[in-house]
Design a protein around this nucleic acid. Structure first.
Lengths: 252, 252
DNA sequence: TTGCATAATTAGGCAAGCCTAATTAACTTA
DNA sequence: TAAGTTAATTAGGCTTGCCTAATTATGCAA
């Protein structure tokens, strides 16, 4: 909340200053420039700006120190960053390095209220008594399954299949596979199937859960399906069309 | 993936052009400027840039149309946006308007691989057979409880309390409340308690799940607890200290 | 204490994205 | 078809955040 007046770049500088002071007792222009991957003059200029706005104590060639405000803001930014990193790595199971980069990328853009809900989700998945870590472990299994043709993927595949064949008693009737639709029908994507490669290609095409579409052409082994979404025509081969669970208005 | 060469601002313009074409058949400078909340000259300039880079068909005072590339990219950006909006509103239960703004804010900054995992989490929570929507509903109950002193919050409060009193047989022994620690101990925050107001104040102070800290001073009803985290000293009253579940190295 | 290496700063420039004011083109309507 | 309105563009300027090259300050070593 307090940091609103700082640009993204300035926020990054401030965090770097805090980290350097914590790690090495002093923050020097050279290190700041290195960590931010900019030239030293850029770092000097940034320090001047932070000084003018009251976040650091700075005068040419002297020690750089955080003011009380600066310390508060920097600490808050760091906390947010590390929570997001935890979220990415503990919930989404993203490796540390990427988790760190992603946290950096989005930390400047999340409102506090969304952050709070992510915290609640995090706590719910990892700590809620009622779940007793059953849920997060189940999700991690699914992630593993989703990542490749690992043996455990059988579970996810079965789940997907179970939902999409009419003889499955648990199937929700208004759901089906895109491959089963006929020309002219409208629908909404509910779920992408368990094949990692196909799923990535669907994501690349912008076919994600929630997308609304209209079937232009039904295909078969030889000719592609054509659907329209967002005013764009998209072609899909049969295999892909069988990997998309959709919801439709009236059962066909 | 394709959009990497476009700046954030350009990506926004491109999406706006797509939306206008879909909604009104034509995209005009004035509307673009209005939606982006910039002046018309800025929109003109942006169109020139998008034209130079091959995303749109444009020459002064003529119709603006998307090229094939432009259409692909714009569609992909829109899809990503609307998935994120779905995620925020369906999973985190954020209202439509804020969900839309938050999606806007972070869509430019998420890698595809993180996006894929968010999709998997979304699918898992909303659609996984094994969960059968039990989990997401449970989470939404928790959200409701977390939001205010609603009657249902009793559940969450009980859950939090159950974990944090030693006579609870299910309690994980290495977890306790921050209020129970003594001076000099180190710990890590695991969970913020069920009181909405206190939780927000903790978030504001940068005390989030995952934060590492060191107890400087234990407090009581009269004097505050002081903990150090990230090189900063933070004061907490007793009530707040009782709302923070922590993990410690050795049980006290 | 002189000299050299390193750190920091100054000076001057550039691109992206925005702005306002002024101008030009295009539509509309009497 | 001439006038007035609205849309779009041009011209010129500003800020942020970066850069390189040149300069100045600092600290260590002989």
């Amino acid at each position: 909340m307090i940091e609103q007046k700082l640009s993204e770049s300035q926020q990054d500088y401030l965090k770097i200053v805090l980290n350097l002071i914590n790690e090495k007792k002093v923050a020097r222009i050279k290190e700041i420039a290195t960590r931010k991957d900019v030239s030293m003059p850029s770092a000097t200029e940034a320090m001047r700006r932070l000084f003018n706005e009251g976040y650091i104590q700075y005068s040419a060639r002297e020690f750089i120190e955080l003011t009380t405000t600066g310390e508060k803001v920097a600490h808050w930014l760091s906390s947010k960053h590390s929570f997001l990193k935890h979220f990415f790595s503990d919930v989404l199971n993203i490796n540390e390095e990427l988790a760190d980069r992603e946290a950096c990328a989005i930390e400047h853009h999340l409102s506090n209220s969304t952050l709070e809900r992510m915290i609640l989700l995090y706590q719910f998945l990892n700590e809620c008594e009622k779940n007793d870590s059953r849920t997060i472990n189940l999700f991690k299994e699914c992630l593993k399954a989703a990542e490749g043709g690992a043996p455990s993927s059988v579970a996810c595949r079965n789940c997907f299949i179970a939902r999409n064949f009419p003889h499955n008693p648990g199937a929700k009737t208004q759901h089906t596979l895109l491959a089963n639709l006929s020309r002219g029908q409208d629908g909404q994507i509910v779920m992408l199937g368990p094949d990692s490669e196909i799923r990535l290609s669907l994501i690349d095409k912008g076919l994600l859960p929630g997308s609304l579409f209209h079937v232009e052409e039904t295909g078969d082994a030889d000719s592609p399906f054509v659907i329209q979404t967002n005013g764009c025509l998209i072609e899909l081969d049969e295999e892909a069309a069988k990997m998309i669970e959709v919801a439709i208005e009236q059962p066909k």
